[in-house]
Amino acid sequence: MNLLSSFWQDANLLWVLSGTLLLGVSAAVTGGLAVLRQRALIGDVLAHAALPGIMIAFILFESRSPGLIFSGALISSLVGYYLIGWISRVSKIKADAAMAVVLSLFFSIGLMALSYIQTLDTPNKAGLDRLLFGQAASMNQTDVAILSLVALISLTLIIVLFHKLRLISFNRQYAQSLGINVEFYELVFALLLVMTVVIGLQIVGVVLMAAVLLIPITIARFWACSLKSILMLAAFFSGLSAIISTQVSLLAPAMPTGPWMVFILGVLFAFSWLFSPHRGVIKQRPCSTDKTQPQVMPDV
């Protein structure tokens, strides 16, 4: 009880908690839609692809303002997203290879730029590499303000566009034949995904960003059948892991929040797999109509 009361008095921890909670919820929902489109590892690629944008923005403007870093990362992740599509469209290279190519190329460019920055004589270049590993504990009020804005925008957009996004994810051709502007909604979705990744990058780091995007939905699909309830449950589990991991960082201050969040998500996955009412190890009673698998594999 003592711990809990000291928790609420510690303003910094409150920021960290609301930050990770918001990130978890919006990442679970946007990432969930990405997993349904057979692009589970896209978060990993986009998070790595953000690096060159950050570094080049720093070289050009010699500043580390959050807005600058955010726009640099946003642009280069978006370029990466479209480059994957372009490579697999114009050549016979498959989508998975295109993803790995973009990931390693962009990250190499970023590292090259970072090593170039280290030879430069500019002030405040220290700490740029911190972005690679994420630092939830150093979150402050401005970060959380930006984060809540992004989370709010992406959640609202997903709720408003839910029917169209669902249709496009499951049956692209059908959506096109209904006269839906598929390209436009694809762009909106790409922007949402990239925004979430770029924000989350600074909190949980590059690698664990992918986990926060993809694990919640894999847990949720053990418990529900319709897409709507799966996405809501994913948000719930993600939020739960955010709360527990912040508590862990509170008990042991040296503990990083991001890895604990992923660790707890993994444990939740194993637990759900055992006790799921639909596809569990113990019980097997499939949903009447399995809506979690796309009927038409989208050609990426």
Partner: peptide
């Protein structure tokens, strides 16, 4: 065995092992 797409299960496994390593 859990009927997950192969890329999702790969992502699940490696990120979890990586976070365990960092912890």
């Amino acid at each position: 065995h859990a009927h997950l797409p192969p890329d999702a299960s790969l992502g699940l496994v490696f990120t979890w092992l990586f976070s365990l390593a960092i912890i």
